[in-house]
C-alpha cells in the first residue's frame, strides 16, 4: 500500500489549494466576459429577423423589427449564481401604454428573461400581444443538462398562459430555471 508521509500530504494539499485558489480567481474574469448567450440578441438585431433564435420556437417567426436587446454578463447575487437576473428589457419599439388600454396588464412586445441556478441558466424570449403570450422561445440554453428535457415547456406556457409549468421528471433544475426565465420576462412586460 502507498503510505504517504504526513509532510508530503500537507505539502501536496497546500499545492493543490494554491492551484485551486489561482484558478478560482482567474475564473472570475471569465465570468464577466461576454458569453455566447448574448449572441442571440446581437444576431437578431443584425439580421432583423428572429428565426435563427433556436429550435424551440413555438410559432416560427416573430415579428421582424422587434429586436431583443442583448443581455450583459450575469450579475452576482451574494457571491452565488444569479437567479432570474433582471436584465430583460422590452424591445426597442415595444409600445408603452396604448391609449384606451386601462385594464391592460402587459405591454406588447418581445421580452427576454433569464432564469438560473447552480446548474446553469436558460434565456427565453417571450412575445406578448394584447395581454396574451403569443410566443415563447428558448433563446439560449446553458444548463448542464440536456436541452431536450425542456423543449416542450414553451408550448405549456402558451397553453396555460403562465410561467408555471409542470415539473419535468428528471429535469427539475432545468424546469425551475425555465419558469424563472419566463417569469422574469413577464415581469419586464408588466405595466406599472
Amino acid at each position: 500500500m502507498a503510505k504517504m508521509k504526513k509532510k508530503w500530504i500537507v505539502l501536496c494539499s497546500a499545492a493543490i489549494g494554491v492551484i485551486y485558489a489561482s484558478e478560482y480567481v482567474a475564473s472570475n474574469f471569465q465570468a464577466y466576459l461576454p458569453q455566447p448567450r448574448t449572441r442571440v440578441g446581437t444576431d437578431m438585431q443584425a439580421s432583423g429577423s428572429l428565426y435563427p433564435i433556436g429550435p424551440t420556437s413555438t410559432e416560427g417567426l416573430l415579428n421582424a423589427g422587434n429586436p431583443i436587446p442583448s443581455s450583459s454578463a450575469l450579475p452576482e447575487k451574494n457571491g452565488e449564481s444569479p437567479n432570474a437576473a433582471a436584465n430583460a428589457t422590452p424591445s426597442a419599439d415595444a409600445p408603452a401604454k396604448s391609449p384606451g388600454s386601462v385594464n391592460k396588464r402587459y405591454n406588447d412586445g418581445t421580452y427576454t428573461g433569464i432564469g438560473s441556478n447552480r446548474r446553469g441558466s436558460i434565456q427565453v424570449a417571450v412575445t406578448v400581444k394584447r395581454d396574451k403570450i403569443t410566443d415563447v422561445e428558448i433563446s439560449d440554453f446553458a444548463m448542464h443538462y440536456s436541452e431536450s428535457d425542456v423543449v416542450d415547456l414553451p408550448d405549456q406556457v402558451l397553453h396555460k398562459q403562465s410561467s408555471q409549468v409542470d415539473n419535468v421528471s428528471g429535469a427539475t433544475y432545468s424546469t425551475q430555471a425555465f419558469e424563472d426565465a419566463v417569469a422574469d420576462a413577464l415581469a419586464q412586460a408588466k405595466i406599472g
Binding site: 502507498a2 504517504m4 494539499s13 484558478e23
Partner: peptide, 21 residues
C-alpha cells in the same frame, strides 16, 4: 491510503481544466 491517486487526479483535473479553458 490512496492519497497519491487523489492528489494526482486533483492536480491533473484542475490544470487540464485551465489549459482547455
Amino acid at each position: 491510503q490512496k492519497f497519491p491517486q487523489v492528489f494526482s487526479f486533483a492536480v491533473v483535473y484542475l490544470l487540464a481544466l485551465f489549459v482547455l479553458a
